[in-house]
């Protein structure tokens, strides 16, 4: 690049006098200026809409401010934080969230990878199959939540109707403590299995064919091939997908809101849902902010993990 440059810079001078004023001084300046001019509006919007609100929440988390009561906010130090960390209610929500995240993401990973593996072994109709399997993922959580609520209805829901015709008993899916959480996991699994499937499929189709051919020449067993070729090569990408889903599942709010509204009792209240209740039904803005900041910390840790793996994947 460096050699032809001096030759070429005098080129426009001779041939294209109509070209805009000499680059020389202004070019280097404009490169930096251009970068700043192009990047700063985007960063400003993010600062205003993401960073500033979080800083405000951070400030509020040290006060007893309430959005409805109004009035000045009193500084309470770490009071909100200690109250939340010591609260048995919060512990219970954390457990519910943990069960939900592990259950849903685990199921999705197993199912999604299985489907991807089965599709990758087909030679015909791959495109069509993939497209069909992807439909649930593209739907809004509102649509998904509403529709499953209808299907899981104890009286006229189609799921119970099918169970009935199979001679099985009726299940009160959304109105019993244990089944409600299971229903939530099932619905989330239904919606997001395609996500894992899509990423796993991308990984599976990227495995070089010659590895399998070499292995089959050596008469390696199917399981051996899967264990030593497929899994190691797909694993890094799969891990990215799993972490991504874990973050999303941890933040989950809309599906709970639509499907069970946290009930029955508090059996399906996730941390997100609890924050909402504290903030918008209890109007303890200060406490809710501290609660939210703690959630953000967890998300930041998970995101760092995710970005680190992503970085590793990109460098390979």
């Amino acid at each position: 690049m460096s050699a032809p440059l001096p030759l070429a810079t005098d080129h426009p001078g001779q041939v294209a006098p109509a070209a805009p004023p000499a680059p020389g001084r202004s070019r280097r300046l404009s490169d930096r200026g251009l970068a700043a001019a192009f990047i700063s509006p985007a960063l400003l919007l993010l600062l205003a809409m993401s960073v500033f609100p979080l800083l405000w929440a951070l400030y509020l988390s040290f006060t007893d401010y309430s959005a409805t009561r109004g009035g000045p906010a009193h500084f309470v130090g770490f009071g909100n934080y200690t109250a939340i960390l010591a609260s048995a209610q919060v512990h219970q929500r954390a457990l519910t969230t943990l069960i939900y995240v592990v259950g849903a993401v685990g199921l999705q990973t197993v199912l999604g990878f299985t489907i991807a593996y089965l599709i990758s072994r087909r030679t015909h109709g791959r495109g069509l199959l993939t497209t069909l399997f992807l439909v649930p993922m593209m739907l809004s959580p509102v649509v998904v939540g509403l529709f499953w609520r209808f299907m899981l209805d104890a009286q006229f829901g189609v799921i119970n109707s099918m169970l009935g015709s199979l001679g099985l008993g009726q299940v009160e899916w959304l109105t019993r403590q244990r089944t409600a959480l299971i229903s939530l996991i099932v619905v989330d699994t239904w919606q997001w299995t395609p996500f894992i499937m899509l990423i796993a499929l991308a990984g599976l189709t990227a495995v070089p064919k010659y590895l399998y051919e070499a292995a089959s020449i050596d008469r390696a067993s199917e399981w051996f091939r899967f264990r030593t070729i497929t899994l190691p090569l797909v694993w890094p990408l799969l891990l990215i997908a799993v972490l991504f889903r874990a973050i999303e599942a941890f933040r989950l709010f809309d599906l709970v809101y639509i499907l069970t509204n946290g009930g029955p009792g508090v059996s399906t209240e996730t941390l997100s849902f609890h924050v909402y209740k504290v903030a918008f039904l209890g109007f303890n803005t200060g406490t809710a902010s501290a609660y939210g900041i703690l959630m953000v910390l967890v998300v930041i840790v998970l995101t760092q993990l995710y970005l680190r793996y992503l970085n590793k994947l990109k460098e390979d």
Binding site: A42, L43, L46, M49, S50, V51, F52, P53, L54, W56, A57, L60, I247, F250, R251, F253, S272, F273, V275, Y276, A279, T285, A288, S289, G292, I293, M295, V296, V299, I300, L302, T303, L307
Partner: peptide, 16 residues
């Protein structure tokens, strides 16, 4: 920039 997208909406919505 990417990590701002991962913030829980329920938390961001309070200060917003």
């Amino acid at each position: 920039i990417l990590s701002t997208r991962f913030m829980p909406p329920v938390v961001v919505v309070i200060p917003i």
